[in-house]
Design a protein around this nucleic acid. Structure first.
Lengths: 142, 142
DNA sequence: AACTACATTATAATAATTCTAAACTATTGA
DNA sequence: TCAATAGTTTAGAATTATTATAATGTAGTT
């Protein structure tokens, strides 16, 4: 039984057809020890290498968005020019290293739960995200 | 003495030439009771109306970025397609209403200080931002 | 196997932002 | 005051990121 049966089933469960491209993308994204962060460009390269052939940019966008809608991926926006996706879809926070442009997960021990004391009337909270921008002490930021 | 002397001085202090466009932009942005949030497009409209003539989009981008670099403005990125600027440059957090696409300041009473227990070695914290996405209970988000 | 619905692709279209080079303007100092 | 210069604005071109299109391909169903 090939190891990608996992992903074929997983895709079916959420109503996505297990196409060659999607299964390959699943393997690139989820068949690993630790979750990670990537940009669309990163991903295009990784999948093309894995498949040993080009994958259409449009397919990568479509599929990433399909995965995002189904809760397989989460977008993390740093500023208007830097946007990442995260394969860790659980609620968690991030450090962003402005020297290296690296996004780093906070684990539960790094930060106390955020205590929100007032809410917007008639609205429910969908997400709470903390972004901590760091840089080396001597770094000339922005 | 015209009220914009304020801004001419302010601009000089941070090393920006007080051009007509910059002084007008200052008045639109800072000559008001409360701080506010805007997009580049919002701002182009507001300035063109105030000046009663077109302002170049490039100038608005340039000037917003100049103000941002000098600490007059702060960018708030919601996701890869929604980016706002904030005339409130003090450290504070935001609610984002996904129904109306409205960005709302948290005041100090709305949220306890974020307690970060571990830092990245050799790095100092430049900013800590909390974004709380809200929507009406029955709203079908994303 | 054949049908249908959905997916992928290359390419075109769109949108947002930045670049360019010419014209313009604030500042400096003679 | 006036010219020199350094920085600014502008329209439009270029670039970049993303989405739309329409033809072709593929998975699921009968």
């Amino acid at each position: 039984m090939p190891k990608n049966c996992n992903f074929i089933e997983k895709l079916r469960e959420v109503g996505l057809r297990p196409t060659k491209q999607r299964v390959n993308m699943c393997e690139v994204l989820f068949n690993r020890e630790k979750t990670f962060h990537f940009t669309i460009n990163d991903l295009v390269k990784m999948i093309s290498e894995k498949m040993n052939q080009k994958i259409s940019l449009a397919t990568v966008y479509n599929t990433v968005h399909a995965f995002e809608k189904k809760g397989y991926l989460k977008e993390i926006s740093i500023d208007s020019h830097k946007s990442y996706f995260d394969t860790n879809t659980s609620a968690h926070h991030h450090f962003f290293d402005e020297d290296t442009n690296e996004l780093i997960d906070c684990d539960e021990n790094d930060i106390d739960p955020v205590n929100i004391k007032k809410n917007i009337t008639g609205k429910k909270i969908n997400s709470v995200e903390v972004l901590i921008k760091v840089a080396s002490d001597n770094h000339n930021q922005k």
